[in-house]
Design a protein around this nucleic acid. Structure first.
Length: 425
RNA sequence: GGAGAGGUGGCCGAGUGGCCGAAGGCAGCUGCCUGCUAAGCAGUUGUAGGGGUAACACUCUACCGAGGGUUCGAAUCCCUCCCUCUCCGCCA
């Protein structure tokens, strides 16, 4: 949610910045509602002041035994007027709030202006895609032939966009999760969290998935609760309605969770394989920071996520999303794209964003600067990494001509010493 | 699922219609005092919104789990809901 005071003072500039994201929000509606609300509020508060002082006077008169019925009758009318004004004001406020909840964050000044993913800018590249002496297979083929991915039976159980990992596949998924969590907790200083996988609707409002993106979420029938689409939701909302101490910052959490998404509107996209699933595993990183340092910390966070791929020795590149490709709540985002030889291209495996105070304002997360008034904190998060896609990257990058897959060394201790997945005969 | 108890400021804890934004204590901050150990004295310390200011100051309004109601006036009375705790049942 954007700051109303800021909007009031910079409405033209804010409108322009929203346009660069391709957002159609019209801020003149905001302006109108905001002015109307303040007008009503002023009138109501003036009357309340009057009522308060009159009530004290009435109390005094009654104690003295003076007749106060005239004053009481007068105040009865005032109270009725106040009630009416309060209702009108609350209506405006609700409308205003509903409007603000649908307006996306403003892009940071360093975000390249552009229309869509084609205008994203590659900021760095790491590793060199391996040259294969044979035609590299896609992970689906590798997985099926090794007997570690069973798409058919997953379909029988749950339908399209679900998967079933088996044997070394399941082991590898688990190894990747442990490997990533260890890296982030032991080397990067994150505190491990295992949050609930079901959260209340208001939490999703806090991080920005609601109210606008309800269609992407799995709602629990009969409850105002949802399956989490990402650990970002429970992690960021951990400190909802809290004031963090300055010395505690930055607060950094890492969590493994499954993620549940309807993938509405992606029909026909990535229909086979592990790339796009209704349920997938992810290790998520979240940081709560002071506003002054949030952009430095975005670089840090992105680096933390990249380190996973460096350790695994898998080539990737980092892309700065342009204004038109930014997510709803983000002020700036880097995507990490991993090299997939089977597909012959880079695919998104992580998304690291600074939300500035956009989520903090929605979720009421503040901190107290030394000796100062509470301020909204800045929230950041990033995948570190999407586990299923990392498994895909491992299978495709380390496939051998004989159909086996060599396990990256960093992963072996987590996979019970397994060095290679061989074809079953 | 059944029975009972309770939700007040950073914490503990008073407060059953006006003098309560809320006693008292603890913690915190400021000043003083004292060369002796987490001592003593005085003062001070919530959040949000509106108005106001260059910015302060200042000022008004709201907030005692949430939402309604009664009343000139509600932390205090009434209704609904939520949450926590204890006991029983069930369960991983």
């Amino acid at each position: 949610m954007l700051d109303t005071k800021m909007l009031r003072e910079n409405i033209a500039q804010a409108q322009w910045r929203l346009r660069t994201r391709g957002d159609a929000a019209d801020l003149s509606a905001f302006k109108e509602l905001d002015e109307k609300r303040r007008e009503l509020l002023k009138e109501a508060e003036t009357l309340k002041e009057k009522r308060n002082s009159a009530s004290v006077e009435i109390g005094r008169m009654k104690k003295d035994g003076t007749d106060a019925s005239v004053e009481m009758a007068e105040m009865q009318k005032v109270s009725a007027r106040i009630k009416a004004l309060d209702e009108l004001c609350a209506d405006r406020e609700r409308e205003l709030n509903a409007l603000l909840l649908m307006i996306p964050n403003l892009p940071h000044t360093t975000v390249p202006v552009g229309k869509d993913a084609n205008d994203n800018v590659t900021v760095r590249q790491w590793g060199t895609p391996a040259q294969f002496k044979f035609a590299p297979l896609e992970h689906t083929d590798i997985g099926e032939s090794l007997g570690i991915i069973d798409a058919g039976r997953a379909g029988k159980l749950s339908g399209a966009r679900f998967t079933l990992l088996k044997g070394a596949g399941a082991l590898l998924e688990r190894a990747l999760i442990s490997f990533m969590l260890d890296l982030h907790t032991k080397r990067h200083g994150y505190t491990e969290v295992l949050p609930p996988f079901i959260v209340k609707g208001e939490m999703l409002v806090g991080t920005g998935q609601l109210p606008k993106f309800e269609a992407d979420l799995f709602k629990i029938d009969g409850w105002d609760s949802y399956l989490i689409p990402t650990a970002e939701v429970p992690l960021t909302n951990i400190h909802r309605d809290e004031i963090l101490e300055d010395e505690a910052l930055p607060v950094c959490y890492a969590a493994y969770t499954p993620c549940f998404r309807k993938e509405a509107g992606s029909y026909g996209k990535d229909v086979k394989g592990l790339i796009r699933q209704h349920q997938f595993d992810k290790v998520e990183l979240v940081r709560f920071t002071r506003p002054e340092s949030s952009y430095e910390e975005l670089e840090l966070l992105t680096g933390n996520a990249e380190e996973v791929l460096r350790q695994l020795n898998i080539p990737y590149r980092v892309v700065a999303l342009c204004t038109g490709d930014l997510g709803f709540s983000a002020a700036k985002t880097y995507d990490i794209e991993v090299w997939l030889p089977g597909q012959g291209r880079y695919r998104e495996i992580s998304s690291c964003s600074n939300f500035e105070d956009f989520q903090a304002r929605r979720a009421g997360i503040r901190y107290r600067p030394k000796g100062g008034k509470p301020r909204f904190i800045h929230t950041l998060n990033g995948s570190g990494l999407a586990v299923g896609r990392t498994l895909v990257a491992v299978l495709e990058n380390f496939q051998q001509e004989d159909g086996s897959v060599v396990i990256p060394e960093a992963l072996r201790p987590y996979a019970g010493g397994l060095e290679k997945i061989d074809k079953k005969r």
